[in-house]
Design a protein around this nucleic acid. Structure first.
Length: 201
DNA sequence: AAGAGGATGAACT
DNA sequence: GTTCATCCTCTTG
């Protein structure tokens, strides 16, 4: 089942980041379908979260889609190279988002390898937000897509996979400038026994 | 108009 | 562990 709008509209973005583990990310781009199981996420909760692009309701053309209704895609380029895929949550004008940091290849692994220019399947194919984005074919042009629409080339599904609480590991977020009080907050979540996650901090 | 630097990854040593 | 690729966006003047 496609994750419904109500899943994204909830207030607690941290809980949504946890709930997204074990869900499936499907893309159908250029007629090619790939599927990955989400195994690592990070929550960003502006306006109070200093690590968010939308801290203190900061609003620019780049992060405009963070203010869209929950269930919208927010993709942006990091370090000039990496296309990072986020899921916007909460109601319009509340800029909450969950960064998808890693997925496990499920369907069409050959295409993922091709996109990553690799020949053997290993964890780094889809571990890390930049790598996962490339493997799934996601680019900045996909920012603003409605993930709940049947016409969207990107959507998420619940396939009735249930994770126990002890299978989920929380840790601090990465890539943030140090000496920020938000740096140590454990809003990064991963599936315990998956080898397809990026390195802990 | 110019410059700094970023929610990273890969290829080095 | 360290470096660097690569470029767009935002800030400052």
């Amino acid at each position: 089942m496609i994750l419904p709008r109500a899943f994204y509209l909830r207030e607690d973005v941290v809980q949504i980041a946890i709930d997204l583990l074990g869900k499936y990310l499907i893309t159908e781009i250029d007629g090619e379908r790939t599927v990955g199981k989400i195994v690592e996420t990070e929550a960003y909760r502006a306006p109070e979260d200093k690590a968010s692009h939308a801290y203190n309701y900061r609003r620019t053309p780049r992060n405009e889609h963070m203010y869209a209704e929950g269930g919208t895609a927010y993709v942006y380029i990091c370090y000039g190279i990496h296309h990072l895929f986020n899921v916007v949550t909460n109601v319009r004008d509340i800029p909450h988002a969950v960064l998808i940091r890693a997925v496990e290849p499920v369907e069409n692994v050959e295409l993922m390898l091709l996109r990553r220019n690799r020949s053997v399947l290993q964890p780094k194919i889809t571990a890390g937000p930049g790598a996962a984005g490339v493997a799934m074919g996601i680019r900045v042009g996909h920012s603003g897509l409605d993930l709940t629409s049947v016409d969207s080339p990107i959507w998420l599904e619940d396939r009735n996979l249930k994770l126990e609480e002890n299978e989920i590991i929380a840790s601090p977020r990465v890539g943030l400038s140090t000496a920020e009080e938000w740096t140590g907050i454990p809003w990064r979540f991963r599936v315990k026994n998956s080898i397809f996650t990026s390195k802990p901090k």
